[in-house]
Amino acid sequence: MNLEEFFNMGGYAVYVWSSYGIALLVLLVNIIAPLRQRKKLLHGIAATARRRARRNA
């Protein structure tokens, strides 16, 4: 099997590759979203803590 044949998918390239592409996209988004949320949460918590410390000082 050569590469061109592989990408052509027997004429169904659009359907097969778009399916796999969408799947990849959805799965990646689900990984990135909690990563970003974690970062945002930690930054937010640190910022609140700093603000409190400043007010108390």
Binding site: I31, P34, L35, R38, K39, L41, I45, T48, A49
Partner: peptide, 28 residues
Amino acid sequence: FVVLMRARCEVLDRERNSGWVKELAEKT
């Protein structure tokens, strides 16, 4: 693993006032 990642965020959000979360936040 994704559910664990999300659950970790939930933990941070709910425990934002506990000491260990604040420590963790300061380290980042």
